[in-house]
Design a protein around this nucleic acid. Structure first.
Lengths: 207, 207
DNA sequence: CCACCGCCCTGACAAATGTCACGGGTGGAA
DNA sequence: TTCCACCCGTGACATTTGTCAGGGCGGTGG
């Protein structure tokens, strides 16, 4: 028998993290060598423990899973990345793959498939939920321009145009223009609706 | 040695559900007798398998964890309920306790404490995160009236006042009044802001 | 009984929002 | 170079939104 596959787990919910560790430790060919709860702890832990595969959640404090993927691929090239996330948002998959992830698994896939996904990723294969992949192809990339995304992201907090303009150092008219464009592109009726749509599609990632 | 404690797990994310099962099955005095992914499957499964303790997530399709708690306490009185949730929202804890839950655990508690929480609940004790309990007492119950809550809940979708009025069978003026009252009570600036605040406090639960 | 409270509605008003047309600036692609 | 897309800004406009002051209705409790 060969060496077991060494795993790093990153998830902000300690209970889920521990449970995943228990689940994966049941497999004789897998061993968990590190667990972290923040995105910015991924690279330091990986440098220390040299895992073969890292399982990263997208929603994490410090650094989101996508950014952590980028950092990890740069710092420890030999370590493969399997992104495990709650939300099957098309934009997440796209961004994860662009960041260099080797696999993408949603948290409502059956538990028994997770170990297989890990093994496939370790073997150099790509693992992607086919349904989500189709959806991603269908929705296409974000139609929003960079500023529109930024404005929409800031508008999540629910402030007035004046406040948005102040925090973004823009004029009110410009903010309104960007919002109007975003509303049009998302097919929404409202600013709030536009924020919702963009968020559901994973177009508001980063920062 | 006595009989092991029989558990029912309810969580919409199959991966988390399976992982929790793996984690709890490591304990010799615990055994998982049922796993379900929807709130409305809790009672039927409990009738079949007669668990001693049910671990219920709050966010579930079909029936949320609070409503499932109420139904389960009525249908299978001998079964204790431990609510396990992602979000430590004050309103959730309050509602869960009112519904008859015996314990309330947030998903970022350490994994090793979960089995103890289960044992305490089974022994008839109450298990509550002290920090969250304090916060709940501080925030108090929802200041929103029933209609205000309903209007705010409908406003989550992000439609215009006219649409809200149509789906709620109310006049536009009334909808505006309820929204205005809700905005005042939540200390928000906006309709969107009010929705956000109310949601974060767990005041929008049910349906 | 009457006061009170929540609910529903009206109408009107100021403020915020969404839309449009326009111009100037920049940088990349044809 | 010339185009084109994006960015930033202006100003004006119709619509929507939030607020306020009222009034009517049905319960509950002193």
């Amino acid at each position: 028998m060969t060496e077991p596959i060494k795993l790093l787990l990153a998830d902000d919910q300690a209970l889920v993290r521990g449970a995943l560790a228990a689940l994966l430790s049941l497999e004789p060919d897998l061993t968990v060598v590190a667990e972290v709860g923040r995105g910015d702890e991924v690279v330091p832990a990986a440098r220390r423990t040299r895992p073969d595969v890292a399982l990263l959640d997208v929603e994490m404090p410090g650094l989101d899973g996508i950014a952590a993927t980028t950092a990890l691929r740069a710092a420890v090239p030999g370590c493969r990345v399997l992104v495990v996330t709650t939300f099957g948002r098309p934009g997440y998959l796209r961004r994860a793959m662009e960041a260099g992830a080797n696999g993408f698994v949603v948290k409502d896939t059956p538990a028994r498939q997770l170990a297989d996904a890990v093994r496939r990723v370790h073997a150099g294969l790509r693992v992607v939920d086919p349904t989500l992949a189709a959806e991603t192809l269908a929705t296409g990339p974000s139609p929003l321009t960079e500023r529109e995304t930024e404005v929409l992201r800031t508008a999540r907090g629910g402030g007035t145009v004046a406040e948005l303009a102040a925090t973004l150092h823009l004029s009110e008219g410009t903010v309104r223009n960007h919002l109007s464009a975003a509303i049009g592109k998302t097919g929404a009726r409202n600013r709030a609706d536009a924020v919702r749509v963009a968020e559901e599609n994973g177009w508001l990632l980063g920062e």
